[in-house]
Design a protein around this nucleic acid. Structure first.
Lengths: 338, 338
DNA sequence: CACCCTCACTTAACCGGTCAAGTACACTAT
DNA sequence: ATAGTGTACTTGACCGGTTAAGTGAGGGTG
């Protein structure tokens, strides 16, 4: 089956290729009557502009890239990314932009992928997640002049547009809530310590614990996987001065922590309260359902996509603050047993 | 920063554009010495062929498409898709093919996306999941001559390459195992009944139950989400003749089922044994860890990608049988209490 | 009535690859 | 010496859009 081209439309409409192009792109240069006729023909023969030809003649590729840099075993289970992706799609699909995905093993590989995509002119911009301190990707994106939106930065103004949320505020809310319930020994199982948003959360956790006089704030670093979540939880529950509440940096580790507590014969929330970060269906799936710091992940993704499309259109670099995660109390938190 | 083109390489090497093209693509027409020189220059200046130009001149777009047609809320949590995707990537990345993703709401929309992609010449082939009976996507793919690989067909020979696994055999193994443990009242919570592989599993379940004299085999249809999994489980556990074992069509529903049992004060595996389909980290995360029908989902994806690349290269249409899921016993199955 | 302006187009170059056809030269066979 | 063959290139058309520059008709103005 032959793909219709603008030449086909031009022939049927009795005009030139150029006129068809103007008509289809809403540019001035054709009369309203001709435009309507051309659009009708395009519709009728099911015309779609060849994206290669369009990209080649200097216009947009109408695609954006996303690299996922987490090991496959965690990618599979963490709802976060899929939530983000469906958010992107909602926005990109509406503008008929495509999303190109690449799974990578390291930030170095990520940089290579950016360079390749740029060289291939395959994408118009990228979405960057998991920002680190002195992230090696940022200077490369800058050098390549590749429009980008960073998700999960610290909120400090930088070279590229950021979508960030006040994670510090959310941690503070969670700790205050647990203290109000009567907890005094609160621990935390964090995500990868190199990531900027992990650092923001850790700092806020330390500060609020200090300000409420909770003694030293214990944060055990992990990596978002269930295994590490279990390991960290065991370490916390075995040691002396066992905490009565644990805040986890994602839902997967929180679920793993719940399982460890049950396996050790501790009751949740009687002996241990659990708060998860990121409220996916996973949290309401388990028993007891987990109290979580909820945010609209796919809305977050949609906002990121919108900002990226703006950046591609050459609009200003900005810092967009997304909704702060809010506490959704469920069955996994309660006052500690005397 | 200007992107290097083959013209730049040609100039530096003192040859024509054509020669560079032959050299880079491993085609005959240049001497070994010249080829080496050209490749060295390409390497040095960081050349990547403009994918648009390449696609435009009749060659491949070097991209394949995947549409995800499940509601966002389930997409987020089901590890299956992410596992598949990382499998695709392993294979596609090696050939520097890109993966283009689109989330859609219905098979009708999916067909539209295929048509658009085809018209835009954006992709060289597609991966089709969740095959239905008389699937409307198949004739369209055929009409468009779009290379495709179907994942999760029934194994019956058809118009397009299929990757399938013997789900019937796996169900049979699970039921036999439960019967060996002493169970006689075994129920099943299935995925969406329209999907072909659901039908295959249901048929096999009915057959093995009949052949083992287990009375009528109860299958409650659900949709892979946790909510539906909970609902179906409650229905099974409330009714008379409560089953002592339930087989779930995915891990998410199995976890939800576990939570329902716990919430109803039933012990797992004492009062109820649970078998999950698809062994993701989720299964070993909960307490007790779930007995599962495991298969290498990302290997499955890799195989699909390989077959798709073959189909794009015009190689034969084939039916590839992937590894059958095998039972991984864990803590959620045991003999029923007297 | 000449002049200018606007509108609605047409024309053709261009993007950066691919590839069929053409060319120049060396080497071999008769 | 001449034709024939193969190698190593060059040349230029082509893919299907976009867009700057050009054109001709019609209307308004002094």
């Amino acid at each position: 089956m032959k793909r219709p081209t603008i030449a086909d439309i031009a022939r049927r409409a009795g005009v030139s290729k150029g006129a068809v192009s103007y008509a289809l792109n809403g540019q001035p240069g054709v009369s309203e009557a001709t435009r309507k006729r051309i659009l009708a023909i395009a519709q009728e023969i099911g015309f779609n502009a060849n994206s290669a030809a369009r990209a080649l003649s200097g216009a947009r590729a109408r695609a954006v890239g996303l690299t996922l840099c987490r090991p496959a075993r965690i990618l599979g289970i963490e709802p976060w990314f899929m939530g983000l992706i469906s958010g992107f799609e909602a926005e990109l699909g509406a503008q008929s932009y495509a999303l190109t995905l690449q799974v990578v093993a390291s930030p170095e590989q990520e940089v290579e992928v950016y360079r390749r995509w740029w060289g291939e002119r395959r994408i118009d911009g990228v979405i960057v997640t998991d920002l680190r301190e002195n992230d090696i990707r940022i200077p490369v994106l800058h050098q390549l002049q590749l429009p980008a939106v960073v998700i999960g930065g610290s909120g400090e103004p930088g070279a590229v547009t950021q979508i960030w949320s006040d994670d510090g505020g959310a941690v503070t809310e969670a700790v205050r809530y647990l203290v109000a319930l009567g907890h005094t020994r609160i621990a935390r199982v964090s995500g990868v310590p190199d990531l900027l948003h992990t650092q923001v959360r850790t700092k806020a956790f330390n500060e609020v614990c200090a300000s409420l006089g909770l003694g030293d704030a214990v944060t055990v670093p992990a990596d978002y996987t269930g295994e590490e979540g279990s390991r960290a939880t065991r370490r916390l529950l075995i040691g002396g001065g066992r905490p009565t509440a644990i805040i986890y940096d994602n839902d997967v580790m929180a679920v793993a922590g719940l399982a460890v507590a049950q396996e050790m014969g501790l009751s949740v929330p009687g002996d241990l309260s659990i708060v998860a970060w990121d409220d996916s269906p996973l949290c309401s799936l388990v028993h007891p359902p987990l109290t979580a710091l909820s945010r609209d992940v796919s809305g977050y993704g949609a906002q990121a996509a919108r900002e990226l499309l703006n950046a591609i259109d050459g609009k200003k670099v900005g810092n967009v603050k997304a909704q702060t995660a809010h506490l959704t109390p469920r069955g996994s938190t309660a006052p500690p047993r005397a």
